[in-house]
């Protein structure tokens, strides 16, 4: 095995990097691949919480880099998904504790044993971003359908190109179909038109994501949700399969289905 390193970034904070990293990594692991996630947000770690693994942290990324433990000791194995691991960030240090060359070395050590290494990048374009970008084979840029997030995504795509890590691929997160229909939100076409890179996923807005994050269960494990399906499709596209984009317009809750039944009966 020679793992590919996927770096998940956005520039702007709060657009869903960590949620996407957790769910895409979990979705890749659910396809049977061996996956390790690395939390690159040293000092403001979140990925462990979203994955529900925070109470099992003994060693972290900085301990590995500074030689206080072996790499295997810092890897936390997920109990729900086979072959799914997390290397958490240190909470008591900052981004300067790790350098881009440390990250390249770390990933080179991991590559033989995994199919995918997923790095959750911190917000911003400083040291933490460069750490996460240095080992990347594939960069996924997350954005929301709002102008400020798209502007930052554009900046990030430019930086990724400048470092010759491109072309990055795009995930449009938190799309509310009702708002797009009303013309209150940028549509996927508008965003892709502006950023001019390949779209690899559209993730619908869904309150289940928040609930799952708080419970520490990646929403992708919830078979019933459309958002979980969206993440599983992204994983398949990363693996090179052609999967059509979901029809977000279709209601998938009970009342929506009920409505459909009635509408069906009327016509």
């Amino acid at each position: 095995m020679t793992a590919k390193v996927i770096t998940i970034t956005s520039g702007k904070g709060g657009v869903g990097k960590t949620t996407n990293a957790a769910n895409i990594a979990a979705a890749l692991a659910l396809t049977g691949d061996k996956v390790v996630c690395i939390d690159g947000d040293i000092g403001l770690r979140n990925l462990d919480v979203v994955l529900g693994l925070e109470n099992r942290i003994v060693y972290d990324l900085v301990d590995v880099v500074e030689g206080r433990c072996r790499l295997a000791q810092a890897m936390i194995k997920d109990k729900r998904i086979p072959d799914f691991f997390l290397i958490p960030a240190a909470q008591t240090r900052d981004k300067s504790a790790v350098s881009p060359s440390d990250m390249v070395n770390l990933c080179d050590q991991l590559r033989p044993d995994f199919d995918w290494i997923v790095i959750d990048c911190p917000a911003g374009i400083e040291r933490g971003f460069r750490n996460a970008l240095a080992p990347a084979d594939l960069v996924l840029v997350i954005t929301n359908p709002e102008i400020s997030a798209v502007r930052d995504a554009d900046r990030i795509i430019g930086l990724v190109e400048a470092e010759e890590k491109g072309p990055a691929k795009l995930i449009l997160n938190r799309v509310s179909i009702d708002m797009v229909k009303r013309g209150d939100m940028l549509a996927a076409d508008d965003v892709v038109d502006l950023l001019a890179i390949e779209l690899i996923g559209i993730v619908p807005e869904d309150p289940n994501v928040l609930v799952s994050s708080n419970q520490g269960v990646p929403v992708v494990l919830n078979e019933k949700t459309k958002v979980g399906k969206a993440f599983r499709n992204i994983a398949l596209r990363i693996k090179g399969e052609q999967v059509p984009f979901l029809d977000l317009d279709e209601k998938d809750n009970f009342f929506g289905r009920l409505g459909k039944v009635f509408r069906g009966a009327n016509h």
Binding site: P100, S101, E163
Partner: peptide, 15 residues
């Protein structure tokens, strides 16, 4: 110089 060379030089300096 290519991006990889200048980029890694910059990273080494920032270390």
């Amino acid at each position: 110089l290519r991006a990889a060379e200048l980029g890694s030089f910059r990273d080494h300096l920032s270390d």
